[in-house]
Design a protein around this nucleic acid. Sequence first.
DNA 1: GTCTATAGTCGGATAGAC
DNA 2: GTCTATCCGACTATAGAC
Lengths: 218, 218
Amino acid sequence: MAQEKADAKQRLIEAALKVFGEHGFKGASTRAIAGEAGANIAAIPYYFGGKEGLYLAVAGHIADQITGRMGPGLSAAAQLAGNPATTIEQRRQALLALGDGFVSMLVGTEEAALWARFMVREQFDPTEAFDVLYNRVMGPSYVAISPLLGPLLGLPADSEELKLRIFSVIGQALVFRVARAAILRRLEWDAYTPERLEQIRAALRANIIAIMDAGRPA
Amino acid sequence: MAQEKADAKQRLIEAALKVFGEHGFKGASTRAIAGEAGANIAAIPYYFGGKEGLYLAVAGHIADQITGRMGPGLSAAAQLAGNPATTIEQRRQALLALGDGFVSMLVGTEEAALWARFMVREQFDPTEAFDVLYNRVMGPSYVAISPLLGPLLGLPADSEELKLRIFSVIGQALVFRVARAAILRRLEWDAYTPERLEQIRAALRANIIAIMDAGRPA
DNA sequence: GTCTATAGTCGGATAGAC
DNA sequence: GTCTATCCGACTATAGAC
């Protein structure tokens, strides 16, 4: 009984992440999910109460995974940002590190493609799952960036301008998942590799440095 | 016979854009599409040969619409960029104008939400429709930006660094569609209004100016 | 906890009237 | 060119055996 396979419940969640992402809630069939998971169709009503319960469980799973990977970095950034003794240069470095970590997680791992696909769907047509993702993932990420970039741009933490500019910066990384097919085609790449990932991080750093340093007193 | 209703074929395409976007290809039912269009289900095999043909027709429709709105601006930018007499300052202004136009189109119109939803789906799981969208929309847009930003950053037009940094910049605008729900929640907005649209354009301009001007000789 | 069998509904496509 | 009627396969959920 070498634990080579997770239990049926966990396998169903991972299969559902893939199939819901491919076909949406309506388009995903419980047959396909159960088949992918190597489980019985009847296990879905049994464990999750039905198709909808499984969908929500997928959102929780995504939040768990991302929190596990980004959590430590975000906490460190928040602590550093909250300390009045933190210098401008330390904020710059922390922001760049956050960007690197975000790209590594988002673009550099295969699972993140599945998380992103599911999350983007929820952005266009939010359901109950969006609340889970916003409260546990998107909100906390934003909150970590705000007190770092605000002082660098000379903008108050609660100003709409700062919020918009932060989302714009986040978009610079997000695009590598959300427009992946177009980017690969333009670059004549077949996939992201570790070397290419570093090129992406470098391009993003260059843009972030430009934005941060434009806020400096001339 | 005041032309208050387009013909059934056109109505089906517009209904399909909405329903395919909501539920994906599999999840969208031809019944729902026909119902939304006020047309008969049998009209879909009749006009488009089947569900797939209708899906492809939607891609063509999106390309037509976006080309109609962005085409003139892109042509003007391309002509200006190709002229060796064009100054750096003119390139800066052209790039900012392109950004403004892109945000106005993408974020400022209701239909663009439908186009974006359909196109993002194709980015994650490309089908034949992606070729249509890439060749007619995404490719040409990129090509217009490249010869404007390249000289400003001192990067050759075919360098991978330039390509990556351009996509990163595009992401700054894209995010306002792709993370719309999260952005509205963070800003405590219920929708984008014309005033808020101008705030978005301003935030984007600030970031683009920072990126452009960081490439200037110190 | 996992299976088979089945109920009841909805799916896309077609045939053929008008 | 638009309709109704219909075929047949796929869907989710449940009941009940093991």
